[in-house]
Every structure is written in C-alpha cells, then in structure tokens.
Design a protein around this nucleic acid. Structure first.
Length: 172
DNA sequence: ATGCATGAGAA
DNA sequence: TCTCATGCATA
C-alpha cells in the first residue's frame, strides 16, 4: 500500500509527448480556422476564464513550437484547449462571422548585440554560465556593452537552455 | 520566429 | 540577485 500509481486527477496529462501532440494539433486546427497567433492571444481574454487574460503572439508561437518551459506548457495547455473548442464551436454555428481588426502603435528600442560580441558572450557562458556581478561588469567593459545588457543576456541564455525543446536532449 | 527586456516573486 | 512567464520589437 504505497505504490501511489496515481492515474490522473483529471485530464491533465502533462507528459511531454502528449504536450507535443497537442501543440501540433492546436496549430493545425488554428490555421484551419484561419486565425493568427495574435488573434488567439487576444481572444483568450474573451474566454473569461478565472485569472486568464490575453497573451501575446510571441507566447502562442512559443507554445506551438514548444519553446516554453515544461511547466509553462502545462499551464497554458488547458487554456488554449478551451479556446480551441470554443472557437470551433462558434465557427460551426455562425459561419458568417466577421473579424475585428484592431491596430495599436507603440515604440520601444531594442539593443542589438553584434556578432563578435555575441560570440564572446557565448564563450564566457560556456566557461561560466553564472558569472558574478563583478565578472559581468568586467565582461561588459571588455565588450563595451552596458552591464545590464550583459546581465540580461546571461539570464536569457540560461532560460533558453531550459526550454522544453532543448532541455530534454541536453546530454543526448 | 526569435532576441532582448520587464516585473513579480523566490532565495 | 536570480528565476520564470511573458511581451515588444524586429529579423
């Protein structure tokens, strides 16, 4: 009395293969509905699920390509599944739907790290993926980059290694 | 599709 | 300070 087999509390299967299969199906059906990734993200808010707002095109794209953490994928799956079912239901009953196009504008700058500097950062990362604050400052000065830019680069690099698509096969 | 960034919460 | 989920901007 302890082999807690534990089937599955609900339909929350979180096994990687199932997630991958779902992501694939999701994308195909979304396209069939003629809906863009951005549309899906915005539509989630209309779903009015508790604690669920809208998401960006980026996140939907990453979900479909499995470039999110395993936990993130598991959390988003039920939400996207709910949207898909609702969307297909609506598409079925009212084929005379019209799309609401909304445009917004913004401006913000994004730093671009040149190839040479990026190569250096990757080299540093290979040796020490978690440099100390002082080491970061040192690297930043050597590469003539802002310290914060370097710090964030390392954070993102570490996070990148944890994405579903790449973390599992790390040691192949 | 992906690079760099932000903010909330954990350590 | 870091992680984590997420997003703006852009290739």
């Amino acid at each position: 009395h302890h082999p807690v087999v534990h089937h599955s509390m609900h339909d929350t299967e979180c096994d990687p293969r199932e997630l991958e299969a779902f992501a694939e199906r999701f994308k195909q059906r979304r396209i069939k509905l003629g809906v863009t990734q951005a549309d899906v993200g915005a539509a989630l808010a209309n779903l009015k699920l508790p604690g669920v707002g809208s998401l960006s095109q980026s996140t939907i794209c990453r979900f479909e390509s499995l470039t999110l953490s395993h936990n993130n994928m598991i959390a988003l799956k039920p939400i996207l599944q709910a949207w898909l079912e609702e969307a297909e239901r609506q598409a079925r009953e009212r084929k005379e739907a019209e799309a609401g196009g909304l445009a917004a504008e913004r401006k913000r700058k994004r730093t671009s790290i040149a190839a040479p500097e990026k190569r250096s950062l990757e080299a540093y990362f290979a040796v020490q993926p978690r440099p100390s604050g002082e080491k970061i400052a040192q690297i930043a000065e050597k590469l003539d980059l802002k310290k914060n830019v370097v710090r964030v680069w390392f954070c993102n690099q570490r996070q990148k290694q944890k994405r579903m698509k790449f973390s599992a096969v790390a040691g192949h």
